[in-house]
Amino acid sequence: MADPYTGDRIILKDLGFYGYHGVFAEEAKLGQRFFIDLELGTDLTAAAETDRLSAGISYADIYDVVKSSFEGQRMKLLEAVANNIVEALFQSFQGVSWIILRVRKPEAPIAMVRGEAAIELHRVRK
């Protein structure tokens, strides 16, 4: 089977948000920082050849969908947060054929000396 995550892509990294996602009551009350990295598989040929924004997907529009999805509903699990974002991106941008999305939680309430907790979803449009 061929790797579906090939070809052109739009990449946005280190999108920062403040949110209240998490299992613990303190997370719901105090909130914390989250960072999102994503790759969207889409054909960039028309945008590259015409140099017209209307021929591609606006990075600002992608950010707006991610922000709205992230802030829209409090979730306990990073997996659920990421899934909501992926579904919103597929719904908003018909030209996106696959998405790789990572949600990072640098202040997760676990005993880490350094680092972060994160999850990554790989999804292909159905």
Rank of each mutant, 00 (worst) to 15 (best):
Y18K: 13
T45M: 14
I57Q: 01
A111E: 15
M75N: 15
R33M: 11
A111G: 15
H21I: 03
Q73V: 09
M1V: 15
E26D: 09
V124R: 01
P106F: 07
K67H: 12
R104I: 13
F93D: 05
W98Y: 06
L53S: 09
A2L: 08
E49P: 03
F34D: 00
K67T: 05
F90Q: 10
R125C: 06
H122T: 06
K76H: 13
Y20L: 07
I11A: 04
N83R: 11
H21F: 03
S68Y: 08
L38H: 01
V23R: 15
D37S: 05
T42M: 07
D14L: 09
E49Y: 07
K126C: 11
A111N: 15
M112R: 15
R104N: 12
A118E: 10
D8C: 13
V96T: 06
R33Q: 11
A25V: 08
L78F: 00
D61W: 03
E107M: 06
A82C: 00
A111R: 15
F17H: 06
N83H: 12
Q32S: 09
F70V: 02
I10R: 08
P109W: 11
A82M: 00
G19Q: 03
A117P: 12
I11L: 07
V65K: 02
E107I: 09
R123T: 00
E120L: 08
M75S: 15
F35C: 04
G31V: 06
R104Y: 06
Q94Y: 12
Q73W: 06
H21P: 05
Y18F: 14
R104S: 13
I62K: 01
R104G: 09
L121T: 04
Q73F: 07
A88R: 08
V66W: 00
A117S: 15
A88Y: 01
E107Y: 03
G19C: 09
R123F: 04
A25M: 14
L121K: 01
E87N: 05
T50D: 03
R9D: 02
T45W: 10
L40R: 11
I62F: 02
F34G: 02
E39V: 07
R52Q: 14
L101W: 02
V66L: 00
N84F: 01
A117M: 14
K13C: 10
Y63S: 03
S97C: 10
Y18E: 12
G115I: 12
F34W: 02
S97I: 01
H21E: 07
V86Q: 00
G95N: 13
V65S: 04
K76C: 10
L40H: 08
E26A: 09
E27Q: 14
I100P: 00
L77N: 08
A80G: 05
G56L: 06
V124F: 08
S54G: 07
Q91T: 12
M75H: 15
G56Q: 08
T45I: 12
T42K: 00
K126A: 14
S68N: 14
V86S: 01
T50C: 08
F35M: 08
G41E: 02
E26S: 08
